[in-house]
Nucleic acid binder design. Structure first.
Lengths: 218, 218
DNA sequence: GCATTTTTTTAGGTTAGGCTAATTATTAGT
DNA sequence: ACTAATAATTAGCCTAACCTAAAAAAATGC
């Protein structure tokens, strides 16, 4: 698989995560920042390699083999993110682009040794689970912060939007992966919420921000 | 610079290391394992970028700017080699191919942090010096083992041939970077030599082997 | 339910980096 | 010094991954 093929497959995997059976050409083009015409070409190629099922005009469905390969790429990406943050002292909002390059290094031995060196981490710095070498992910169910009810509690375990802008904002207001939170209030007309962070800090946030924060109840 | 361009430039740099002012198209093709026709194309491109001076039919000369860029690639390669050996427990003969991929990751911050993490190493696992961020290399003069005289002493600091086959052979016979050696005997008719390793182990080696081992006198 | 809009695909072009075959420059041999 | 051999370049083609414009299929609106 080439770097471009790996990136397309990863994008298709992520787009089908929400249980959607089929992903459209336009969706892929949006995710990859390429034009639909380029996507059609690539889908034909990936279809021939049998990592996706491709029916013209009807979108694409990732196969079991495709899923396995996508999860390996994701595994590599997230392991490198752990390395960058834990060992090289990168901030969590600086790692994505570099990991995007590192994930394409071809060496199973390297990844195996890296995993050992990092002491077999199960989550990356954004709280996303790291698949094992067989592609197995043991993720506990998560809630989106803006869908929780007043009084509910949990821990921030991940963010949906990994853009530097969003991550920097979270840092600024004092939210972080691992923070324990409790829903104090919800405003119906704009969906904004008030939460308590670590039993001490009150924090207001808009619905748009809350919709990008994932919570796990313990 | 693309990956291919970086690789060509590095090859040209290495080929001109022996003080040769000009490198031939065929030499580059040999080093890059491509055909001379492909090299002509690439030399034109590198010439336009002014990292080499290219006169048709007369070979190529690397410019100061080209040298600087080649040294940065070499710096990255050698830092990654140190990482692989020191941190991930790779054997010194397993690192070259992986480092060849890692050296093309584009992130000055990454290299700066890696350098810090590795504690600013000055030599890679093969004993080759690591250029600093300005491209400066402080290498002490080296002798080729087969050109030393009986009675001379020194330390193995590098090998010319980094192939896995050669490195494995050295491991097997007990030679390694850092070993202190003394020339015990030289056979004129075939150039083979006998050395003492670390004041205890006698070792015979052919001229071909000795010609690939570099010694530094302290 | 037919026309319009949207989505997707196809056709054809571009750039990077390879290739082979043919041509041209340089170098070597007698 | 002239011919033969070698080295280097050009011409023309290929594949991967993008693009734009045009055509075709599917979805939508009234």
């Amino acid at each position: 698989m080439t770097t471009a093929e790996e990136n397309y497959l990863k994008a298709i995997y992520h787009l089908s995560e929400g249980g959607k059976k089929s992903v459209s050409t336009n969706d892929v083009a949006g995710a990859m920042k390429t034009k639909p015409a380029s996507v059609s070409d690539m889908l034909r190629k990936l279809g021939e390699k049998e990592v996706i099922e491709y029916r013209k005009y009807y979108g694409v469905h990732i196969t079991d083999e495709g899923k396995k390969q996508a999860l390996q790429t994701i595994r590599k990406h997230r392991l490198w993110e752990v390395f960058l943050v834990d060992k090289l002292n990168f901030a969590w909002d600086e790692v994505h682009e570099v990991a995007e390059e590192l994930e394409h290094i071809q060496s199973p031995l390297l990844i195996q040794r890296l995993d050992t060196f990092l002491n077999y981490p199960k989550f990356d710095p954004h709280g996303d689970p790291i698949p094992d070498e067989f592609g197995d992910v043991k993720a506990k169910p998560r809630l989106v912060l803006n869908e929780m009810e007043i009084g509910q509690m949990g821990q921030i375990v991940a963010v949906k939007d990994s853009s530097a802008a969003f991550l920097k904002y979270l840092d600024k207001v004092g939210a972080y992966i691992g923070a324990r939170i409790k829903i104090l209030d919800k405003t119906d007309f704009d969906g904004s919420i008030e939460i308590l962070v670590d039993q001490k800090k009150n924090l207001f946030m808009s619905k748009d921000v809350a919709a990008n924060i994932l919570i796990q109840q313990s």
